[in-house]
Simulated assay, not measured.
Amino acid sequence: MKNVILIGANGATMRVLTEQLKDNADVHLTLFLRDAKRIDISKINVPVTVFEGDATKQADLDNAIANQDIVVVGLGGALAHFVAPIQQAMNKNHVSRLIFILGLGIYDEVPGKFGEWNGSFSGMPDFKEAARLIENSGLNYTILRPAWMSDRPEINYETTVKGEPFHGTVITRASIADLHHSPDQ
Rank of each mutant, 00 (worst) to 15 (best):
K2C: 02
I5L: 01
I5P: 00
I7C: 03
G8C: 08
T13W: 05
T18N: 02
E19R: 09
L21F: 08
K22A: 14
N24H: 04
A25K: 14
A25N: 13
D26M: 10
V27K: 03
H28I: 03
F32I: 01
L33Q: 05
L33H: 04
R34M: 00
K37H: 12
R38V: 04
R38D: 13
R38K: 15
R38G: 15
I39G: 06
D40R: 04
S42P: 04
K43P: 02
I44M: 11
N45S: 14
P47T: 02
V48C: 14
V48L: 11
T49P: 02
V50Y: 05
F51N: 00
F51W: 09
E52Q: 14
G53N: 09
G53R: 10
G53I: 10
G53E: 12
D54H: 02
A55L: 09
T56R: 10
Q58S: 10
L61P: 02
L61I: 07
L61V: 09
I65T: 00
N67W: 01
D69A: 00
G74M: 02
L75A: 10
L75S: 12
G77W: 10
A78M: 10
A80S: 15
F82L: 11
A84V: 07
P85H: 01
A89H: 08
N91V: 15
H94Q: 14
V95I: 09
R97K: 15
R97F: 07
R97S: 04
L98S: 05
I101P: 03
L102A: 10
G103F: 11
G103H: 06
G103D: 08
L104A: 15
L104N: 12
D108G: 13
D108I: 03
E109V: 08
G112F: 04
K113D: 15
E116W: 07
W117K: 08
S120F: 03
G123R: 08
G123F: 12
G123N: 12
D126F: 06
F127G: 02
E129D: 08
A130G: 11
A131L: 07
E135F: 05
N136T: 06
L139H: 01
I143C: 11
I143V: 14
L144E: 06
P146R: 01
P146I: 03
A147V: 05
D151T: 06
I155P: 06
Y157W: 11
E158I: 12
E158F: 04
T159D: 09
T159S: 08
T160N: 07
V161F: 12
V161W: 05
V161E: 15
G163M: 12
E164Y: 04
E164D: 14
E164L: 03
H167V: 10
G168C: 11
T172W: 02
T172M: 05
R173G: 10
S175G: 10
S175F: 06
D178M: 00
L179D: 00
H181G: 05
S182V: 01
P183D: 06
D184T: 09
Q185G: 09
